[in-house]
Write a protein that binds this DNA or RNA. Sequence first.
DNA 1: CGATGTCAGGGTAACGTTATCATATACCCT
DNA 2: AGGGTATATGATAACGTTACCCTGACATCG
Lengths: 353, 353
Amino acid sequence: MYNEIDYTLMATVRDVAERAGVSPITVSRVINNAGYISGATRAKVEAAIAELGYVPNTLARSLRSKRSHTLAFITTDITNPFFTSMARGIEDAASAAGYTVLFCNTDESVEKEDRYVRLLLQKQTDGILLVPAGSSPRSVDLLRSQDTPVVVLDRAIEPLKADVVRCDSVRSSYDLIRVLLERGHRRIAALGGPVGISTADDRIAGYTHAMKEAGLPTRDLVIYGQFTESSGFEMAQSVLALSPRPTGLFATNNFVALGAIRAIEAHGLRIPQDVSVVAFDDVPPVLAQYAFLTVIAQPAYQMGQKAVELLLQRLQDEAPPEYRQVILPTHLIVRGSVGLAPDARGSVVTAPK
Amino acid sequence: MYNEIDYTLMATVRDVAERAGVSPITVSRVINNAGYISGATRAKVEAAIAELGYVPNTLARSLRSKRSHTLAFITTDITNPFFTSMARGIEDAASAAGYTVLFCNTDESVEKEDRYVRLLLQKQTDGILLVPAGSSPRSVDLLRSQDTPVVVLDRAIEPLKADVVRCDSVRSSYDLIRVLLERGHRRIAALGGPVGISTADDRIAGYTHAMKEAGLPTRDLVIYGQFTESSGFEMAQSVLALSPRPTGLFATNNFVALGAIRAIEAHGLRIPQDVSVVAFDDVPPVLAQYAFLTVIAQPAYQMGQKAVELLLQRLQDEAPPEYRQVILPTHLIVRGSVGLAPDARGSVVTAPK
DNA sequence: CGATGTCAGGGTAACGTTATCATATACCCT
DNA sequence: AGGGTATATGATAACGTTACCCTGACATCG
């Protein structure tokens, strides 16, 4: 079988050098803007490059220079709008600095995470941005052992063995619960995420703190599940079956919130007349117009940007030896999904000093 | 400045070979499952690999073998759920075949597309999955000139210079308009996308065909814009200002539909009592529960899978010399956003033979 | 006036792998 | 016994680039 495509053999530094009448190293210097090059030589080389349509071979370059100029973003689910925004922030910041980004999905599986980390090590990835699937620092350890810097995103890991960029889930959840408390709600249920994931745990902690501070019980009102729509539906179903029924629901993530709303509707209840809902993470930006949920919005895009900044500092040895933790502020958005508690009778808890 | 990190030098084939008492090529053969290897030798080599924690260097491998085992997906906006699903389909299919996928966003800019194509060529990407930003086959030509196979997704390009995986926008739009016609609508406006993008043009063509066939005018009822929420809002505003006001609206993409809905609400009109709405592309899967739009849903995930299949065939020289065009079936989902035309008076157009 | 420094470029080797060709043994067939 | 084939391994070179170390020319300086 003959291949009839017209092969224009890829030009190499050698070809360019020959054409420009210089040595390959000189060509390399022109490409990399390194060392001393006279204007005349530079012009000759650039002309040759243009004539031959020369494109440097990144593979060979990385092999020799030990830098691939590639970063990787390992996350749990790129279809979650929160991570999609983060990914854009990462890509924009990285590509502005001349880096390419590889995206990987772990589906919250530690095994997949492990496989990706190994693959990326093979590919000589310069640095990694990681949303850890589990609670163990295993991947981080592996990467550190191979001298590949890591920045952990969104979730904390113990002990701190990498720079971390995240938000304050405890405080933010507290603020969210305060919104309900200030409107007279006293029976508030929390729909949690997977135990062991720091964000999930922290959000419950913030809830518990607010409730305790207000002198309210939380027993039976906290339930754990997954950060998915179906899990949110199930969790909401079970807390709505409690008696007396909670008047406020705290969904610890956006998908959980969607499931909860569906469950509330399935019960024939109205939001906020019968049940008020607050949630962590905003709805997808594209649906923002129709959003009625009261939420804590996290600056996903900025988190991505910041993480790249920290990572590049490490790569360029401009970072301090100790690990840094950057906590970005969240944004409380109060919308129509919260109302006065049906049983409030005018006696509303006021904000604590 | 001393670097105090404990360098465990990455083991190479040479180290493994030495330890196993064989030559480097033998190690290579074990890794690649190529050629003849006795059980005993294989065992020795594998043991050495395990002991040294050897990880092959993908860069060197690709440099020598001329295959990077990397594909790239260049799309216009990865935050659009339609493309996100497509991306997952691509990633799943590719990684099952041992390929890594690079994701790139062009934001509908031909310049960005061009830059990415060059970058990917540098990186020796084996093949490219492309949602073209413009209507010109420029990127495709460039890639073909460098012998890099391409599969075009979602949009057609003329002339056909690559395999294409897409849906039948003309036919699907026709079906969507029929839904309105069959419910007595006679004044139906179409909110188009950017002129020159095949999907945008085709959707208007399907609309026009259905209208003409029903003997209805389309003059003044077709308007062009962008595939964005804000453009949808503006386009809807202008057609809603027409007199008499259209009773049916066709949004040629999901973002446009969202803008249109917002405009309809802003006009104080109800869906479907005052205006029926049909749209191309479904809402994000996670929000499917709350969907009320009548839409044509495209099998985004499957499109991605199929495209990878075609691309891998080309890479393995198993593809026919001529370019293939795969048209996947769409799915018409009739939901609450369409009703009988307010002015129908029982006289409903029936389906054509 | 020699020493030193800046500027401009080249030579050689190496990064870690695999393509290509070569060698060697064992086995089967006629 | 001779030839062919399947099996098993090795030697050498090359993929395309850049790190590292040189060589000169010329200017500057004490």
